[in-house]
Design a protein around this nucleic acid. Structure first.
Lengths: 183, 183, 183, 183
DNA sequence: TATGAATGAGTGTTCATTCAT
DNA sequence: GATGAATGAACACTCATTCAT
């Protein structure tokens, strides 16, 4: 039965990512159970509290994201990789779940999710460093503000109604600001 | 008793701005009543449904904000006004309540709050126009992407744990991107 | 100001009769105040509790009804008066408010309303007696069962969806039963 | 746990029949839960809205009633069956819950409860037909007015304070009216 | 004396969490 | 180990009643 349990865990997490991604942490646990095709008690056996479920969903989300970013870092063209990374992360509302993490209690959220988020940040930092070495991004830029800009626009693209071209032009502004030599 | 009622209304709105600003629209009406120091029914007498309360809080918030932006537009130095506006709005998490308006289905939210938000946008647009005329911002920039950038960073500053200097440097990047001649 | 007060009292009672007649005792006091065109506190000044208001409305209703029945008793043709009385009281749902009196607490309802109801019963009894003397109704019938039949059909006509001709035929049955010599 | 759930459902319905029978649809769901000995949420798990609970109680009530009426129709003596039916339905306040169905807007109430009520009417109609064939009831009587008379007196016996012998004599009047040859 | 604002208990309903099967 | 029924605390909202003007 170890395998079934593992499969259930996966199905639950996938459902959680979808539900919490759509409704924030306000999404109901029963809805997650329903989408996962398991009983509600099964969800609570795997994740003793809702908070644990949200945390695990964030973790899974961020870890998948980090992997994708790392694969970008492995590509041949650092400048193009940077451009792609920024546009993709923002355009797909990649950090959508940050919203959920922000809501309950503000800041009271689990270290492990923060750590996972930091792993994404680190991976982004690697792509950034390569871009800086290729002169595509000014060298004074640090990962901190860059990551903040990405998160901010990503969340905005996930939670506000924004026309695609408006978002694109905003990203253009950010990339332009980052490519300038002066700070 | 007209006076008392008016005072209560004010107190309720102030409490609502605080509660919904902190917890989004998920904040409870009872909490608002408690912070305002009135009974729950008093809140409902003034605002027949929770939605009305949220709407009114958003309205109050945005209208105050628009007034402050307009006073900036009236100042003598457009470039400085622009810099101040962007830094202030973002730094104070001025559009914090956008979060609330974003949550409940997005499209389902009150026209009047949207209209109030647009009044802020218009006021910001006026400051932007003056800055462009003074050459402080490139002329190709439109209010759409500029307002998006401000909202995104403002919301981020309200909902994420961000160090002040990180935020400042992110704003620098945006202002730099906007000041460049090329699009 | 005695006159104003009296007028208000009248307006409130009229409104109460309408509201409670329509929604039973579940009708809201505020609705009564609104229809009467007075403040809610005025209602409570005249009738310290909702129960008092319902009682007074019942009283007024029954007293008006008793007066109308008495005028029938004064007419020239006892048989016709009897027929008219039964058909009218039932057809107009005249005792509609009995419903209200039945709901809250069941039986716990005020003596004065019961007394008023009995005044109606007495008046009906007088018409009945005359009809019996004229041979239009069998002599063994007592006011008790007759009044019950009237109240039952009256309430039914007020609370159920009934076609007019169905109601008429039911009344025919009752009148036929009452006109038979045997018990 | 299917069994427990079924038992609870039964207990809830029985409690609902009692509560709504006594206080009409104004009876509170919490009271039903308390009388059933279950938590309030359990009631809502079985019946998602109060309306569903009222509907189910009405259904249960009418279906039990219809079954009892049908068993009468199967008996050997149509005249006695008719007499028993009328006296029993009225005397036990059998359609007590009609009251509940009448209150909330009348037309807004569930088709299924209306249908169940009609099943009772149909069963009563069958007993009536047999009684007519045996000459115990005049042939011109239709189920419509007969059923109305039964419902009216039944409701009255359930909601008013009536002495047993008064009720009996009222029923005598109705039966007498129905047995007469003329319409 | 009339007003209408304020109150708090109560109602229907939802949801995270626990327990019996 | 998985299920789904049961739970009670919470929430949005209503209403009879009281109080300040």
């Amino acid at each position: 039965m170890r395998q079934d349990a593992q499969e259930n865990r996966e199905r639950i997490l996938a459902a959680a990512e979808e539900v919490f991604g759509a409704h924030g942490a306000a999404g109901s646990t029963e809805e997650v159970a329903r989408q996962a095709g398991v009983g509600i008690a099964t969800v609570f056996r795997h994740f003793p509290a809702k908070e644990d479920l949200v945390e695990a969903a964030l973790l899974r989300h961020f870890d998948g994201l980090a992997a994708r970013v790392r694969s970008l870092a492995a590509g041949p063209d650092p400048a193009a990789a940077w451009d792609t990374l920024v546009r993709t992360m923002i355009g797909t509302g990649a950090t959508k779940l940050t919203l959920a993490s922000a809501l309950p209690g503000s800041g009271g959220f689990p270290d492990r999710a923060v750590a996972a988020s930091n792993r994404v940040k680190t991976a982004v930092g690697e792509v950034l460093r390569q871009a800086q070495e290729h002169g595509a991004v000014r060298s004074s830029a640090t990962i901190e503000e860059v990551y903040l800009l990405i998160r901010a626009l990503s969340q905005a693209s996930a939670t506000m109604q924004i026309r695609r071209d408006t978002l694109d032009r905003a990203v253009d502004v950010v990339l332009a600001g980052l490519s300038q030599p002066a700070g």
